[in-house]
């Protein structure tokens, strides 16, 4: 455990290129992964990786943001920033999961949805909204693991889950600390300060009720000992899945969970 790290240090760790990503978790935790590509509307977005796999021998649908390690990979995966096509592929895969009664497991690791011209032209806002809405009513168990950066709506679009687990040094926030600082103070250089204020660390998110469980990482971060992290994620994930499956009423319980996010006064109408 590394309690002494600052929020800004954790932000840096969450972005480490050597940190295990979605593809690594799929390789380590699942067998017989069958990749599914394309939104069936004309595009494949490689920044979202998804398909069917066996998890402890049982079929599941697994979907996650994909980042690269090298510049070349990052150009292919657009630095883990999906366009609307990626979210539409995710919707397609989730709907299939529901049809075939497979649980959905998602891995979140994105700086955010891509803010590009074509992404806007193709309806980035609509795609994210639809992914969130569709995910909210899926009648199968959904468990999300935030493994790196949980950047804004682009992260949430894969994170409307019955359980949200988060790695100790992963972050999940409304915006990157740089974006936050530049919006509020017109100064992206104050991102360190922003990170502290934003309550974006795993511990903060647990306290706010946004994350259900924090998965510890080895000293120095997940990249220092990936196998230990895979084992810890596996244990937490299988326990969460079993628990959600036992509870039943997946869509209704997921709604109750998100319905309670944030309290207001007065309580009554």
């Amino acid at each position: 455990m590394s309690d002494q790290l600052t929020a800004a240090q954790r932000v840096a760790l969450s972005r480490q290129t050597t940190r295990p990503g979605t593809a690594d978790y799929i390789a380590a935790l699942f067998t017989d992964f069958f990749q599914q590509r394309g939104d069936r509307q004309g595009r494949e977005d490689p920044s979202i990786l998804g398909g069917i796999a066996l998890y402890h021998g049982r079929p599941v649908t697994v979907i996650g943001h994909r980042k690269g390690r090298t510049l070349e990979e990052n150009l292919t995966y657009n630095f883990g920033m999906p366009g609307p096509e990626g979210y539409r592929k995710a919707i397609r895969l989730m709907e299939q999961a529901e049809k075939f009664r497979r649980p959905v497991i998602t891995f979140v690791d994105t700086p955010g949805a891509y803010p590009g011209l074509e992404a806007e032209a193709h309806g980035q806002g609509e795609a994210i909204a639809s992914a969130i809405a569709r995910m909210s009513t899926l009648n199968v168990p959904v468990v999300t693991v935030v493994i790196g950066e949980g950047g804004s709506g682009g992260a949430l679009a894969l994170a409307v889950a019955n359980r949200v687990l988060i790695l100790e040094n992963a972050v999940y926030s409304i915006l990157s600390p740089e974006g936050f600082a530049s919006i509020l103070w017109k100064d992206a250089g104050r991102s360190g300060e922003a990170a502290e204020l934003m309550k974006l660390t795993a511990a903060d998110l647990k306290e706010l009720g946004v994350a259900d469980q924090v998965i510890p990482e080895p000293a120095g971060g997940a990249q220092e000992d990936p196998q230990t992290v895979f084992d810890a994620v596996d244990a937490a994930l299988s326990a969460a899945l079993a628990q959600v499956a036992r509870e039943g009423d997946f869509a209704a319980r997921r709604w109750e969970k998100f319905r309670k996010m944030g309290t207001c006064a007065p309580e009554k109408e």
């Binding site: 949430l156 926030s173 998110l205 706010l208 946004v210 998100f258 996010m261």
Partner: peptide, 16 residues
């Protein structure tokens, strides 16, 4: 911005 991640959760709540 000032309500951070809880603002993000409102997207899930309202969309759902």
């Amino acid at each position: 911005m000032q309500e951070g991640i809880l603002s993000l959760m409102q997207m899930a709540k309202t969309a759902a």
